[in-house]
């Protein structure tokens, strides 16, 4: 069970100053997710998905960080930041771009077919329950 008392006594100021990147990850992701759900414009929904994913990329990059670490191109003395999350993010960015491309292409097709980019209008035309 969650210990609510200890949750309250957590050093919130300390959290905001030392872990701000993680807070930003949560903020970015939730804003993106909210945009995907609440915004009726298809293109803005695609942007929302992008923001959601960008938040996750930020989380990975942050997790690789170490104080005084250098880019993980191994020559000379360390310390280096962890290379694995960086590789993961590179791959995930490529995946994200492909998704954006497919999403936008489908939006264009829908616009050509129905003349609107609004999800609520489309639902009405298609008769989706």
């Amino acid at each position: 069970m969650i210990d609510f008392a200890s949750l309250l006594t957590t050093d919130l100021v300390g959290l905001a100053t030392t872990r701000h990147a993680y807070l930003l990850f949560v903020l970015l992701s939730t804003i993106g997710l909210y945009m995907l759900i609440a915004n009726q414009n298809l293109v803005k929904k695609v942007i929302g998905v992008n923001m959601f994913q960008t938040g996750i990329f930020l989380f990975f990059i942050t997790s690789a960080y170490r104080v005084g670490g250098r880019a993980p191109i191994v020559e000379g003395a360390g310390p280096y930041v962890s290379p694995l999350p960086q590789v993961i993010v590179l791959t995930a960015i490529v995946v994200g771009i492909s998704l954006t491309a497919v999403g936008l292409a489908l939006s264009i097709r829908l616009y050509n077919e129905y003349g609107t980019l609004r999800a609520d209008a489309l639902r009405e035309v298609i008769g989706d329950e």
Binding site: L36, L42, K45, V49, L99, V102, G103, L106, S107, R109, L110, E113, L122, I126, D128
Partner: peptide
């Protein structure tokens, strides 16, 4: 296209 976009999101 509508079904695919919904699936994509």
């Amino acid at each position: 296209a509508y079904g695919a976009l919904k699936y994509l999101f």
